Amino acid sequence: TETYKYDDKREAEKAAEEFRRRGITVTVEERNGTWVLESK
């Protein structure tokens, strides 16, 4: 599991889209005002 942090929800979702395009499952969730993207 890799974790990436973003200040902006849009950025996180854009990154998530890129991962999914490569066939990687990711989750995006907000933690304490930071958007956390996790690849499984």
Rank of each mutant, 00 (worst) to 15 (best):
K14V: 08
G33L: 02
E30G: 04
W35Y: 08
K40E: 11
E38N: 09
T25S: 12
L37D: 01
E17Q: 09
R20A: 09
R22Q: 09
I24Y: 14
A16Y: 05
V36H: 06
Y4P: 06
K5N: 10
N32C: 12
E11S: 12
K9I: 09
Y6H: 02
E30A: 07
I24E: 05
L37K: 00
E13D: 09
A16C: 07
T3N: 10
E11D: 10
T1G: 11
I24C: 14
K14W: 08
D7T: 15
A15R: 05
E38G: 04
W35N: 02
R21K: 12
D8E: 07
F19E: 02
A12P: 00
E2N: 13
R31V: 12
E38C: 14
N32I: 02
K9N: 03
E30Q: 09
D7Q: 13
G33N: 05
E18Y: 09
S39G: 07
K9M: 07
G33H: 03
E29G: 05
A16Q: 06
E38L: 13
E2C: 15
K5W: 15
I24L: 11
E13N: 05
W35F: 08
R22S: 05
N32M: 04
W35L: 03
R21G: 06
T3Q: 11
K5G: 08
N32G: 07
T25A: 12
W35T: 02
E13W: 07
R22L: 10
R21V: 07
S39C: 15
R22K: 11
W35H: 03
F19Q: 04
Y6C: 05
V28R: 00
G33W: 01
R21A: 10
F19M: 13
T1V: 12
R20K: 09
A16H: 02
L37R: 00
T34K: 15
E17S: 06
T34C: 15
G33F: 03
E38M: 13
K14H: 08
Y6M: 01
D8M: 04
Y6I: 01
A16P: 00
E11G: 05
T3I: 13
E2T: 13
F19L: 13
N32T: 03
E30V: 07
I24N: 06
D7F: 13
W35P: 02
R31T: 06
A16G: 03
K5I: 15
V28P: 02
Y6G: 00
K14D: 07
A15V: 09
D7C: 14
V28Q: 01
R22D: 03
W35V: 03
A15G: 03
E30M: 10
K14T: 08
R21Y: 04
T3V: 13
E29T: 14
S39F: 15
A15C: 11
K40Y: 14
E18H: 07
R10T: 10
F19V: 04
F19D: 01
A15N: 03
K5Y: 15
G23L: 01
V28W: 03
N32S: 05
R21T: 06
G23R: 02
R22P: 01
S39L: 15
K40S: 12
A15E: 03
R31K: 10
E29R: 10
E18D: 10
E30P: 04
K9Q: 09
T3M: 12
E11A: 11
E18K: 07
V36D: 02
R20Q: 07
T34E: 15
E13Q: 08
R21Q: 09
R31C: 11
K5F: 15
V26T: 04
T3D: 08
N32V: 02
K40V: 13
E17N: 07
V28T: 02
Y4F: 11
A15W: 06
K9T: 02
T25Y: 14
N32H: 05
Y4G: 06
T27G: 03
K14M: 10
K9G: 03
G33I: 00
K40N: 10
W35D: 02
N32R: 03
E11Q: 09
G23N: 03
S39K: 13
K5V: 15
E30C: 15
V36Q: 04
E17F: 05
D8A: 05
E18I: 07
V36G: 02
A15Y: 04
W35Q: 02
E18S: 07
G33D: 04
V26N: 00
K40H: 13
E29I: 15
A16N: 00
S39R: 11
S39A: 15
S39Y: 15
K40F: 13
E30I: 06
K14P: 00
N32L: 04
V26Q: 00
N32W: 03
R20N: 06
T34Q: 15
K14F: 08
T1H: 12
R10C: 15
K40T: 13
V26L: 04
I24T: 03
E38K: 08
T3Y: 13
E13M: 13
V26K: 02
A16E: 03
E18N: 08
T27P: 00
K5M: 14
G23A: 01
F19H: 05
E29K: 10
D7N: 14
L37H: 01
N32A: 05
V28E: 01
I24Q: 07
T27W: 10
E29P: 00
D8R: 03
T25D: 13
D7G: 11
Y4C: 14
W35R: 02
R21L: 09
G23P: 00
E30W: 15
S39D: 07
R31L: 09
R20Y: 07
K5P: 05
Y4S: 06
R22F: 05
E2M: 14
F19S: 03
R21C: 09
A12G: 01
K9R: 12
D7L: 14
A15H: 08
D8Y: 04
D8I: 04
L37W: 01
G23D: 02
E18Q: 08
W35M: 02
E13I: 09
R31H: 09
E29L: 12
D8L: 05
D8Q: 05
T34V: 15
R21H: 06
I24M: 11
T27L: 08
R10D: 14
F19R: 03
T25I: 14
G23S: 02
L37F: 03
R20T: 05
N32K: 05
G23M: 02
D8T: 15
K9E: 08
E13K: 04
Y4N: 07
T27M: 08
T25P: 11
R10Q: 13
A12H: 00
E29M: 10
S39N: 07
T34S: 15
Y4K: 09
T3H: 11
V26H: 02
A12I: 02
L37T: 03
F19N: 02
R10E: 14
K40R: 09
D7R: 13
G23Y: 02
V36M: 04
R22C: 12
D8H: 06
Y6W: 04
R20V: 04
R22E: 04
T34G: 14
T1E: 10
Y4H: 11
E17L: 09
E11H: 06
R22W: 06
R10H: 12
Y6F: 13
E11I: 06
V36S: 03
V36Y: 15
E2Y: 08
E29N: 08
T34D: 10
T27Q: 07
E2G: 11
R22A: 07
Y6P: 00
E2F: 14
T1W: 15
S39H: 13
K9A: 07
R20M: 08
E18W: 12
A16V: 06
E38I: 15
R22M: 11
G23F: 03
A16L: 06
E2R: 14
D8P: 00
K5T: 14
E38Q: 10
K9D: 02
W35I: 03
T1S: 12
I24F: 14
T34R: 13
D8K: 05
R21I: 07
E30K: 08
A16S: 03
E38T: 14
D7M: 13
R21F: 05
D7W: 09
E38S: 11
K5S: 13
R31W: 09
E30F: 15
R31N: 07
S39E: 12
L37N: 01
Y4T: 08
R10V: 11
E18M: 09
A15M: 10
T27S: 09
V26E: 00
K40Q: 12
T34F: 15
V28A: 02
G33A: 02
Y6D: 00
R21M: 08
V36A: 03
T3F: 12
E13R: 03
T34N: 13
R20I: 07
N32P: 00
V36R: 02
N32Y: 05
K5A: 12
E18G: 08
E17C: 10
R10N: 12
